[in-house]
Amino acid sequence: MAFWTRQNKDTKSKEAAIAADFDASDKPYAVLQNVSLELEGRPVLQDISLSLQEARVGIVGLNGSGKSSLVRLFNGLRMPTGGEVRMFGVSTEALREELPRYVGFVFQNPDHQAIFPTVEEEIAFGLTQLGVARAEARTQALAFLDRHHCGHLAEKPFADLSEGQKQLICLLAVLVMKPKLLILDEPMSSLDGLATRRIGRKLAKLDQKILMISHDLDLLRNFDRVLWVDEGKIRMDSVPGDVLPAYEADLEQRAERDPEGLQP
């Protein structure tokens, strides 16, 4: 397919190609070729090559291993310092400003993600970002909240919601933009067990492809593929049945060998 082989400068046809190509689900949505990333002179990711097409991909790894930087390469929040990241066949350098249209990102802390004082405004924001007029955006936002059984929250101040409701609204605020890929960076870390299960069920039903970082390994057991990131490299890349036990065993072993965390 011509689209894959040449950089398309004409955005309209790029969009059409992205839509058509990506919906053929056997195409990888993300391809990394020898990607490395340095932040303030410190190597964060080293020579990573992979291609992702599975509907559900999980990422595990210790804090500081580079997981968060890795997922930020997929939505253009970070640009590789070496190699190339191609999303939907196009280099993220070329697609940077349009990536939020295709890639939704849910952050760890909902209080850092919500920008607006009330729930309805937060949802409507995504629509106005896509060019929908204010009044229409509000109508659509209310209908969207209703569809997701959150109509009663529409007028509430974001600050008054429970943690679970906050994260749910953050998720909806991203979904309302109809992304093709949803990236979640430890979305459950501030949630209790009930809210975690609720959000987990919601995620399982989505049509979007999902790429999720999680320290709660149970959430990844039904995924199609899990990447284990360790010291800026992919240490293991396989089905959860292989990766998760190996990762847990490694954690046990490291805690046993170095109980105080004295070694780097």
Partner: peptide, 24 residues
């Protein structure tokens, strides 16, 4: 530190100026 996180979240949804409409 928080303002950096918020700025990042804002760019993740298309930034302060919104996504350019001529491309939609």
């Amino acid at each position: 530190a928080m303002s950096e996180n918020v700025a990042e979240a804002l760019s993740a949804r298309g930034g302060a100026d919104g996504l350019r409409q001529d491309k939609a």
